[in-house]
Design a binder for these strands. Structure first.
Lengths: 229, 229
DNA sequence: TCAAAAGTGTTCTTATTACACCCATGG
DNA sequence: CCATGGGTGTAATAAGAACACTTTTGA
């Protein structure tokens, strides 16, 4: 094999950290591998990138094959390319994370997965490949992003309460927030639409429901506003 | 060619945005391509990643071949993988930026470059491949990073004046800063060592020289401090 | 009437902004 | 003695942190 050929004896893949939020904890959708290597191990959903496919498209495809969802928030994070990261050859992978509304997810495990399941972020064991490292890197990125852009709303249903929003931030940032200060800050941005609806069927005072006002957000950004929690 | 083989009919490269600062402007080190495609065009220094080489190592190698420098600040930014980004085949590239002290750079153009030259960031024309896009993305990343971590010092000589530091921030952030407020903020961090030396040979009151205290910085970070300009 | 979570203001402290003059040196 | 950039402080404003009780609902 010539030297030039050996440069092409390599492949690239995408791996996708799919985050969800169930009202209490931050979750990650993992698949149990159905094929070698690491058969039976939990892993991030991913696939080789097709020769005629853009990277983002490949990440979207992986997500759609697994969840059936399209048009979801997706962000590239980092390339992982250690020489020995894949036991079968030189494969570098481009890591993405995506944020989905957990209720939208219907179980449709792709052919390459034995099964898929939501995992509590706090209780994830040893994953295949370097996927633990990828997961950590993506969470770190999400922690940054969620404070500087209104991406947290991607994880919530269209109608949500302020307490749900606060719990979302608390679980992503792994910290506790003061209720009054949080509400003051969020509401002072004028980015939430008060729907004049309340929760139903709860055994306590029902909370008001809000919606994120994307149109207003785009407008404010155009005027120099930067989201900051 | 089987489908599996076609997955491996691809290569990856690294491209490195090398930033420097000459006291007034932010500069980027570009090479003029000596080979097709885009022969004669200015481009980011980069190369294919060797089969047995980690990504970071490849980026360091590109930097060292061009500048002779090792142990330089280097950060991965993003993978660029549009299907048609390289006219000769499927090549995805991992973009890095590095920060060097411009005085350390001695001209040693690598074999793959006809010539290398510093370019004013503000006056960069059309580059080869998608390198304009890569450059923009790396600058955006640098703008973020320089405010959240003390990486700006990587661009300055070991001894610098507060005015030089301020001009550095102003040229990276493309904004003007108030002299008194800037000094107050920087000095209040207690991260600069006053060397009790002054500039020599300047036709005005000589400025005091400072040094960044990396040891103290690491210590403060351990105590929960976060750099913020 | 009890349990459970929703909702609400004020004070204190800290950080940010705006702003103008004198100083030291070389030519 | 002039030109050039170096160096300094204060007051006003805005943002962030700390903190406890009343309200509404279903069971």
């Amino acid at each position: 094999m010539s030297e030039v050929e050996s440069f092409f004896k390599s492949a690239f893949s995408v791996d996708n950290v799919i985050f969800g939020f169930d009202g209490g904890d931050l979750k990650v959708l993992l698949i149990q591998r159905g094929a070698a290597p690491y058969r039976g191990k939990w892993a991030l959903p991913g696939d080789l990138v097709y020769p005629n496919e853009d990277l983002d498209t490949a990440a979207e495809r992986v997500l759609e094959q697994l969840t059936g969802l399209r048009g979801v928030y997706l962000e590239q994070v980092k390339a992982f390319g250690a020489v020995d990261r894949h036991p079968l050859g030189r494969v570098i992978t481009i890591a993405y994370y995506s944020l989905i509304k957990i209720d939208d997810y219907a179980v449709t495990p792709a052919s390459f997965a034995q099964s898929a399941r939501w995992h509590d972020f706090a209780h994830i064991g040893e994953l295949a490949f370097d996927h633990n490292e990828i997961l950590e890197t993506c969470l770190k990125q999400l922690k940054h992003k969620v404070r500087m852009a209104p991406v947290g709303f991607e994880l919530l249903p269209p109608k949500f309460t302020l307490t749900e929003l606060q719990q979302l931030y608390e679980s992503i940032l792994e910290t506790e927030l003061d209720k009054r200060n949080f509400r003051k800050k969020i509401l002072s941005m004028n980015l939430l639409i008060d729907l004049n609806e309340v929760q139903e069927g709860v055994a306590h005072r029902p909370a008001k429901l809000y919606q994120f006002d994307r149109v207003k957000y785009e407008q404010f950004v155009g005027e120099g506003f930067t989201f900051d929690v």
